[in-house]
């Protein structure tokens, strides 16, 4: 029973993967028509993630437009052997949005477009099963949210401050008023627990 969603997701992902591979190829070939498909397929998840990180629609749309343009410009560097197209796109979104948060309100960062491009290679790992992009979006996103909510509140908060705000251990400690060691422990335990819960629900397997 637990594996059923994963099976459905895997089937959906397989068809989605093929469509995404075709889309990536069209973008890399410079087919301007492919931009419409890119927008239809990814504007919503890109905007949603950017909005979650940045907290306001104007900034989230700016990041969305920026990411869509980067996907167009750098689609030739997408390597299907390293992971799925959707993970590549949303990984880029996360990176650009966190970078925007830091530029807006944090210590100076050395990360720029070139560094961003380099970091894209870190998002995917060819030796591991990947998340199932569109299928995850529709079928498993709720499971991931549930898994996050199932954590003790302090662990959930620490992980969310790191992932959705880009805060360091020290900054999370200052934000929550907890000792640094406690913050580190909470994040590690929270990640371990998430891994266990998500594996059981079939979102991914070890």
């Amino acid at each position: 029973m637990a594996n059923q969603p994963a099976s459905n997701a895997a089937r959906a992902a397989a068809s989605g993967d093929q469509a995404d591979l075709a889309l990536a190829a069209e973008l890399a070939a410079g087919n301007i028509q492919a931009l419409e498909i890119l927008y239809e397929r990814y504007a919503r998840p890109i905007f949603s993630l950017a909005l979650r990180i940045l907290g306001n629609e104007a900034d989230a749309e700016e990041v969305m437009q920026d990411v869509l343009e980067r996907v167009w410009r750098y689609s030739g560097s997408f390597d299907a052997q390293r992971g799925r197209f959707g993970s590549w796109v949303l990984g880029m979104t996360h990176h650009v949005a966190i970078d925007a948060v830091r530029k807006r309100s944090r210590r100076p960062q050395a990360v720029d477009a070139e560094a961003s491009e380099l970091m894209l290679g870190l998002i995917s790992d060819p030796n591991q099963p990947d998340m199932t992009d569109q299928a995850i979006q529709h079928e498993q996103a709720g499971q991931v949210r549930d898994a996050l909510r199932s954590l003790p509140e302090a662990q959930q908060q620490a992980i969310e401050l790191a992932f959705f705000r880009g805060l360091s251990h020290l900054e999370i400690a200052a934000t929550t008023g907890e000792p640094l060691g406690t913050v580190k422990t909470r994040i590690r335990r929270g990640m371990e627990r998430l891994r266990t819960v998500l594996s059981k629900t079939g979102v991914f397997n070890d």
Binding site: R44, I123, P129, D206
Partner: peptide, 24 residues
């Protein structure tokens, strides 16, 4: 590698919202 999968899962975990009118 294990944590990276969690991070990828979190990428897709946010509540979906349509971009603002006129964004396209």
């Amino acid at each position: 590698s294990q944590y990276r999968h969690i991070s990828q899962a979190l990428l897709w975990s946010v509540e979906q919202r349509d971009p603002p009118a006129g964004a396209y």
